[in-house]
């Protein structure tokens, strides 16, 4: 239960961190909050040869508005995010999701960028990022590129980052007017990995019908599962118990839960149906309040 030896670098600038990444490529594993990586190292599931500790790179810790986008530095801790007035005001779905991440002691170290780059299928923040159509900024010594959340997540613990790139920033575009949101999950104990969870977003038109919807699920697939079919069923409809139930049924066919010692795939599917209906009701109420 002790990590294998590794070479340790603690750069104090992004430039220095990216230079190490350019020199060592995939060997240069980024150490963000360490709340997933260090447990894996303690168990020796992960044995990186070289760690680039990004905790000294202060320029990656920020929360600011650029136009109507909320821009968050990758090394911003989850604790900072859950206390951010900017996040509360401009990205309420993200703000509502953060306290579901593990425990307060973990959120004091864990970062937004670390959680997103780690891409655990059971993680909350990747799901919120997909539901909000966030964009990821990948940087290397050669420059930067922006990747839509949906393309960024490529499967089990796999993201679209090249061996010379680090994730440095996440941009959350403003939600359209008349939009409501909800994040819900079911875990055996608060802070445990959830057996299922959903981020829902509903935008209403001037007549109170659904103009656009998103339903994105956690821990029922290889990454965030975007139930596009279920969301499409809602467009043009009123959000009612009946239309929500139809969407829930459709979503239950779009997910592929693996099951675990705590929940069978059937039970996870049941949870997805129930959570879909509850989350749509809550998101709809909020969309109406915003109309």
């Amino acid at each position: 239960m002790k990590p294998a030896p590794f070479e340790y670098h603690a750069p104090d600038s992004l430039e220095a961190a990216l230079a190490l990444r350019a020199e060592h490529g995939d060997e240069a594993k980024a150490l963000a909050g360490g709340q997933s990586l260090i447990p894996a190292m303690n168990f020796r599931i992960a044995q990186p040869a070289l760690l680039v500790d990004l905790n000294g790179v202060d320029e990656l810790r920020f929360i600011r508005m650029e136009g109507d986008e909320l821009r968050i530095g990758a090394m911003t801790t989850q604790n900072t995010l859950e206390r951010s007035e900017l996040a509360a005001k401009h990205q309420p779905l993200l703000f509502e999701t953060v306290p579901f991440v593990a425990h307060p002691q973990i959120r004091n170290r864990g970062t937004l960028g670390g959680s997103i780059a780690h891409a655990d299928p059971a993680a909350e923040l990747p799901v919120a990022a997909v539901a909000l159509d966030a964009r990821m900024k990948a940087q290397s010594v050669d420059g930067e590129r922006w990747i839509p959340a949906k393309q960024f997540f490529q499967g089990f613990f796999t993201v679209d980052l090249q061996p010379n790139e680090y994730l440095t920033e996440i941009a959350f575009p403003a939600m359209p007017p008349r939009t409501g949101w909800s994040f819900m999950e079911v875990a055996r104990r608060h802070g445990d990995y959830a057996m299922c969870g959903v981020a829902a977003r509903v935008t209403l038109d001037g007549k109170g019908k659904c103009k656009a919807a998103r339903l994105v699920y956690l821990n029922v697939g290889e990454g965030p599962v975007d139930a596009e079919g279920a969301a499409a069923l809602l467009v043009g409809e009123k959000i009612t118990p009946e239309s929500s139930a139809a969407a829930a049924e459709k979503a239950s066919a779009e997910i592929s839960p693996f099951g675990s010692v705590h929940a069978s795939p059937e039970y996870q599917t049941h949870l997805a149906r129930v959570l879909t209906k509850r989350a749509l009701r809550r998101a709809h109420e909020r969309a109406q309040a915003a109309s």
Binding site: A10, G34, I38, D53, N79, H103, Q105, N108
Partner: peptide, 28 residues
């Protein structure tokens, strides 16, 4: 030793954190 039990919780700059999920050199 993987951040679940909380028995190693200490305060780092006033905030509770898991001391099993940090390397000593990170406390510099």
């Amino acid at each position: 030793e993987h951040g679940v039990c909380g028995a190693c919780t200490i305060l780092l700059d006033g905030q509770p954190v898991r001391s099993c999920l940090m390397f000593a050199v990170q406390a510099n």
